[in-house]
């Protein structure tokens, strides 16, 4: 019977759908919400995600939302507001009340890479937000088909011309490879796909010679030997691919990293951000969260908000400099 009991409990949970009752005022989006008293959170806290359900941005937000809910004894529903690489969600957060009722985990690429690809008035600036702290890093790995003639960086260097698959315009995947082939001086054609899965399919099917994928997207086929990992673009080796060298180790100045961090609207009181920091630290310490990172091949990047901002500034300037140096055009920003 015990075998049946647990699922039944979950079934009841599902059916009930949660019936927490609370009295709140004003127009709000989500039902219920708990947590009384004076400490944050007093009502339910909306966590915006600038991506569709199912991607790594969404999953990370959900994992942190779950942790914050437990640690801070509140409800942190995730609200997907996909569009324009996360710019729509960012815009909404920027205009939200700075009282901690709206928070969001945002992507570094929106602040460090997208501004290089879109007109200035569309670019999102980190100055419009207060950064609470870093969350995790999602590194890119350069892969080729195991059956292809390119099995090392030297092979790529010697190639006359190449086609490389990217996960889209203005992504780290595109930037990293554009920089790499600029640095190597190889004549390479950028073939953009719509996200990780089609890019993976194209490199497995041999339609492109090489691609940069997020580790989580590539690792299955790397482990089963269908893909050969050549190098990672992050600042240090990744524990999930310990034998794969970094770009810097290879003597290439093409470090590109994608990382995520918690943001709130500017002017949010420090009691709120302190509580959030507290909740995030407690979440990061849980076994569930650590297992989640491991399963999704995410490297923890649990640094302070100031460090995140400094990193973003540094990345943006470095990318801009490199792009100019190699004469790369990511989009039609001109």
């Amino acid at each position: 019977m015990t075998k049946l009991a647990a699922p039944l409990r979950t079934a009841a949970l599902l059916a009930a759908g949660g019936l927490a009752l609370s009295a709140c005022s004003g127009v709000q989006n989500t039902a219920g919400g708990s947590g009384g008293g004076d400490t944050y959170p007093t009502g339910s806290v909306e966590m915006l995600v600038g991506a569709d359900p199912g991607g790594s941005s969404d999953l990370i937000s959900r994992a942190v939302s779950d942790g914050l809910g437990n640690e801070l004894d509140g409800s942190f529903p995730v609200i997907n507001r996909p569009g324009a690489n996360g710019a729509l969600a960012a815009g909404e957060l920027e205009n939200a009340e700075p009282d901690g009722s709206t928070i969001a985990i945002q992507n570094a690429s929106l602040f460090a890479i997208t501004p290089l690809a879109v007109p200035e008035d569309e670019a999102t600036s980190i100055d419009d937000f207060d950064v609470v702290g870093g969350v995790s890093r999602d590194d890119y790995v350069l892969v080729t088909n195991a059956d292809s003639e390119y099995q090392s960086l030297e092979d790529l260097e010697g190639a006359g011309s190449l086609r490389y698959g990217t996960t889209g315009v203005g992504t780290g995947s595109q930037l990293a490879q554009a920089l790499l082939f600029g640095d190597l001086g190889v004549d390479a054609t950028d073939v953009p796909f719509d996200g990780g899965s089609p890019t993976l399919t194209a490199v497995l099917g041999g339609q492109v010679d090489v691609a940069a994928l997020q580790i989580g997207e590539a690792i299955e086929n790397v482990e089963s030997g269908n893909l050969t990992p050549l190098m990672v673009f992050g600042p240090e080796r990744v524990e999930f691919l310990p034998d794969v060298p970094t770009a810097t180790e290879e003597g290439l100045e093409v470090e590109v990293a994608q990382y995520r961090f918690m943001t709130v609207p500017t002017g949010t009181p420090s009691e709120v951000t302190d509580r959030l920091t507290e909740g995030m630290e407690a979440t990061f310490a849980t076994d569930e969260y650590q297992a989640f990172n491991e399963q999704n091949s995410l490297t923890p990047m649990e640094i302070s908000g100031d460090e995140v901002v400094a990193q973003l500034e540094e990345d943006r300037e470095r990318y801009a400099g490199l792009i100019e140096e190699y004469g790369i055009n990511l989009g039609d920003a001109s």
Binding site: G17, G18, S22, V27, Q28, N29, A31, G33, P77
Partner: peptide, 15 residues
Amino acid sequence: FLYGLRVPLPHLFAF
């Protein structure tokens, strides 16, 4: 929407 599916929908009254 609010209890069965728990989807966010702007609403005035909360219970």
